[in-house]
């Protein structure tokens, strides 16, 4: 009985938190028509987010591409079919790995700093001060961050994809005996020959990146706005922001792939 009550309470707290995050996103979207007034701040936020996470993202992307090439290369070598290595690396980088690693790095760098910033504002009454001045924190603080991340995450993802494919080419040439020209030829073919403007792998990956960016920003803003209890509370908010972002990245990534490749065909 006691156990049930505990599980029930923890579940209802979770539902409550999820409701808060969704509500925050809906309210932020409601302010979209007035975003024009915040464009300067938005550009600042987007630029800072990009610059801050660019170096780490690129290093990780290069290694991720290399790992991808090794993993598939080991199997392909057994069938003597390493010619398609460029194709496979390029497509899986664009569909899964690029958006995923970019989002995880953004969660750790930008998500955590959003939570710390808004959390500090919450515990020092700055959020209350905005409300008292009838400035809605959702309009003033949340919306520009959500939009900045919705722009920055796909932008960085494109770079991650390119660097990742390059990382794969190094392994292909040095360890798997695939000539660099063959690798790049098959990669380019996979990413350009398509009936639609962009191949499915690329647009699904970019859509994912947009969804991840929005999710990270919203979850991190929510964690910050709900912080309480001084510096310790801010620490807990940062922890919650990163943890919840990473969980959402994985779950939403699964849902998007499943939707486009299994549900909608």
């Amino acid at each position: 009985m006691n156990l049930l009550a505990t599980i029930g309470a923890s579940l209802s707290a979770r539902v409550d938190r999820a409701g808060y995050v969704l509500n925050l996103l809906v309210r932020a979207v409601g302010y979209l028509p007035r975003l024009g007034r915040r464009w300067r701040f938005l550009l600042d936020t987007a630029f800072n987010a990009g610059v801050r996470s660019l170096p780490v993202t690129m290093v990780v992307a290069a290694f991720a591409g290399a790992i991808l090439a090794m993993q598939t290369g080991i199997e392909l070598r057994r069938f003597g079919d390493t010619a398609v290595l460029g194709t496979i690396t390029a497509l899986s980088m664009c569909r899964e790995m690029g958006p995923f690693i970019t989002a995880v790095i953004l969660a750790a760098t930008v998500g955590s700093s959003i939570a710390a910033e808004l959390g500090t504002m919450q515990v020092s009454d700055e959020i209350a001060a905005l409300e008292v001045m009838s400035v809605d924190p959702v309009d003033y603080l949340v919306l520009p961050r959500v939009v900045a991340m919705a722009i920055m995450c796909p932008t960085l993802t494109v770079l991650s994809n390119l660097v990742g494919i390059y990382g794969g080419s190094v392994i292909a040439e040095h360890n798997l005996g695939v000539s660099s020209s063959l690798y790049w030829l098959s990669a380019r073919e996979a990413l350009t020959s398509s009936a639609t403007l962009l191949p499915k792998e690329v647009y699904v990956g970019l859509l994912k990146a947009v969804v991840f960016g929005i999710a990270i920003a919203t979850v991190s803003c929510a964690a910050g706005l709900r912080a309480s209890g001084g510096a310790l509370g801010v620490g807990l908010a940062v922890q919650a922001a990163v943890r919840n972002s990473v969980i959402l990245i994985i779950v939403l990534g699964f849902i998007v792939t499943w939707f486009f490749y299994f549900l909608a065909g």
Binding site: M121, S124, E126, A128, L130, V132, M133, S134, V135
Partner: peptide, 29 residues
Amino acid sequence: RKRMGYLFQNGALINWLSVAANVALPLQE
């Protein structure tokens, strides 16, 4: 709230705005 002023304990200034910008905020918005 438009008819009410509130001085927070410790001021609660917005950190990334200058003193003048903080004071201007209620007027600008």
